[in-house]
Design a protein around this nucleic acid. Structure first.
Length: 407
DNA sequence: AGTCCACAGGAAGGGCAGGCGA
DNA sequence: TCGCCTGCCCTTCCTGTGGACT
């Protein structure tokens, strides 16, 4: 009996896969919509790319260019443009045999470059050194890196993407050390390019680092709706099959993205998910309804994903918050902690201190799951006012957390 | 003007896992 | 195996604070 059931299931699966494979997709080349995809031409960024190339040009004569700081909100083409310039230089490096090495590091990548040690170790590895993931003293790793760079006469351009994430976690010590690197080198030199989403990042820096890192600055302004539309049109031509995009779809995607500070990445994601939804519902064309649906789906998925990948303690904290919040009245740290302690005894979870829970609450706030702001209730103390946003699908999230916490 | 609440949030340090060389 | 190093998560201890109340 059982094997018969399995057989039927398998048959259905094969049928499904066959259908899927033979089904016409609205996409022609989906890769076009990946964030890492580099289009042949980068629209609306010519000036900035040119400026960047000019700033870095001395490197071709083995003169040290100024350090450069690139900033602008997410999806304004910073990384893309820097990579484009780097590619241009790399072509020359090969054809003219220039001893130039351009390193790109994303400081946000977990477990690779989110601490001082890891980042420097990663850099040293780029120069062919083997560094253990942990174990060595940090100054030892610095030494290894410096020696590796200085092995021969050469120029190095170090691109630190999302550099603001780095100082958030490790302080500005690392950046300070990097800006001083040339004092340790005799044969080579290193120029830094910092990329940041945080517009106030430089101002918050240690003045010594600030003056050094931002010898030159480039601001990437947000795209406007028309520009995003052109970018989407360009990608859609490559990514979608002919006549698969309905009236107003591109316009709607651009409008949504422009509303959120001109984020082209988000616009592209929206377009891609709209296409996927059209495929899934067997539609021949992407419609504006798919865009609306996609917008909702993206938000939902992001949040649910963030919640389900949280550590147990953070999940317990969130569960406590959702459970104590009655909807209308805001709740406070103390109330949440009481519930949380009780929850811990129910679930055999080791209760953390209120101090720690307080940090977890502010982490959840930063994640965007809840809003928590510090308020004063006068005579009744100072605390955090925690609000579960109406848009949060509290019931859904509660269910996920119940599963995760075995409730 | 002073008090006092209920925390926020900084600093220091403990304990752990993971890795190294000797 | 041992001593030493790291990052990470956490506790303990502490000082700071906005504004209602007196």
């Amino acid at each position: 009996m059982r094997s018969c059931g399995v057989f039927r299931l398998q048959q259905e699966l094969v049928q499904f896969l066959e259908d899927f494979a033979s089904k016409k997709s609205v996409f022609k080349n989906k890769k076009v919509f990946q964030p890492s995809y580099k289009p042949a031409t980068i629209l609306h960024r010519n000036d900035l790319i040119e400026q960047m190339a000019k700033i870095l040009a001395p490197v071709l004569k083995l003169e040290k260019p100024s350090n450069l700081f690139v900033y602008g909100k997410t999806g304004t083409g910073k990384t893309l443009s820097v990579k484009d310039v780097a590619e241009g230089f790399n072509k020359l490096v090969i054809s003219k045999n220039i001893p130039l090495k351009i390193l790109y590091i994303n400081c946000k990548l977990k477990r690779i470059s989110d601490t001082e040690y890891r980042l420097i170790a990663q850099l040293a590895r780029e120069f062919g050194k083997t560094i253990p993931p942990t174990g060595l003293p940090t100054d030892e790793v610095y030494k290894l890196f410096f020696n590796a760079v200085d092995e021969s006469e050469r120029a190095v351009i170090l691109v630190l993407d999302e550099v603001d994430q780095l100082t958030k976690k490790t302080g500005s010590e690392l950046l300070y050390n990097l800006t001083r690197i040339n004092e340790e080198l005799s044969k080579s030199f290193v120029s830094l390019i910092g990329i940041s989403n945080d517009l106030n990042f430089v101002d918050a820096l240690d003045p010594r680092v600030k003056s050094s890192l931002s010898e030159e600055e480039l601001l990437f302004p947000p795209y406007n709706a028309v520009q995003i539309q052109e970018i989407l049109n360009e990608r859609a031509k490559e990514g979608f099959a002919k006549n698969k995009i309905g009236q107003g779809v591109i316009e709607k995607c651009s409008a949504y993205a422009a509303r959120e500070h001109g984020d082209a990445r988000r616009a592209l994601e929206l377009l891609r998910v709209s296409g996927e939804l059209a495929d899934r519902s067997n539609n021949q064309k992407v419609t504006t309804e798919h865009v609306d649906e996609a917008e909702e789906k993206i938000d939902r998925d992001r949040l649910l994903d963030a919640v389900s990948t949280q550590p147990k303690q953070a999940q317990a904290a969130l569960y406590s918050i959702i459970s104590t919040s009655s909807g209308k009245q805001p709740i406070f740290t103390g109330t949440v902690y009481e519930f949380y302690k009780e929850l811990c005894t129910r679930t055999d979870l080791r209760p953390l201190t209120q101090r720690r829970l307080s940090d977890i609450i502010s982490e959840l706030d930063m994640l965007g799951v809840i809003t928590a702001r510090v308020i004063s209730k006068g005579r009744y103390g100072r605390t955090r006012e925690i609000v579960v946003p109406k848009t949060l699908q509290a019931a859904n999230i509660r269910r996920i957390l119940q599963d995760a916490l075995n409730l």
